[in-house]
């Protein structure tokens, strides 16, 4: 990752805003898709997750009030992986996925985001940036706990493997 991210508060905030907004957009997109495919339970679940994510994006934006964030192209962000950590990969979802699998995906991206903020908090030498990143990390830790609680409530016996169903081949 670009080491400037660890020292430049505005650059960090630009990443945080995009991270949260992209997460909400992707969750809304998936909720729409599941609605189109008439999977109502998962549509409702992802809609709820999207709304939560959107609220979190607003919270992060509130930290940017009156500050001019750098304008970056999509490929100029410095993420630990190809995409922002709170956006699930498209290939992780499937039209036959269960609620357990959906929550596993949600848990993974929340953990990735917690890792991202914690990493910045650990590496930065700027006290104000550390405070900001630690605050975001605490919020993400709450999200992780909330998703874990949802998973436990489902009393799912096997939570470790995303075992996608085989393809539907009617021919």
């Amino acid at each position: 990752m670009n080491t400037a991210l660890y020292e430049d508060e505005l650059l960090f905030l630009a990443h945080s805003v995009t991270l949260e907004q992209e997460a909400a957009e992707r969750l809304y997109e998936l909720a729409d898709t599941l609605e189109v495919h008439n999977n109502r339970p998962l549509h409702a679940l992802f809609l709820e997750l999207a709304q939560l994510s959107e609220r979190h994006a607003s919270d992060v934006l509130a930290h940017c009030q009156g500050r001019q964030l750098p304008a970056l192209q999509a490929w100029e962000y410095s993420w630990p992986d190809a995409e922002s950590p709170e956006s699930f990969q498209y290939s992780q979802v499937h039209y036959l996925m269960s609620a357990e699998q959906a929550l596993q995906v949600a848990l993974e991206v929340e953990q990735n985001t917690l890792g991202f903020y914690s990493d910045v908090a650990r590496r930065t030498t700027q006290p104000s940036l550390r405070q900001l990143a630690e605050g975001f990390a605490r919020e993400e830790a709450e999200h992780v706990k909330a998703v874990q609680a949802r998973l436990q409530a489902l009393q799912c016996p096997a939570l470790n493997n995303l075992d996608l169903d085989p393809p539907h081949s009617p021919e």
Partner: peptide, 24 residues
């Protein structure tokens, strides 16, 4: 317009990439 591609389809990513390229 809501896409009717299957959840998990890679084309969603291409759609998003095109919008990002247009924005740039």
């Amino acid at each position: 317009v809501k896409p009717i591609w299957c959840p998990g389809c890679g084309h969603y990513s291409v759609l998003n990439a095109i919008t990002k390229a247009f924005a740039a």
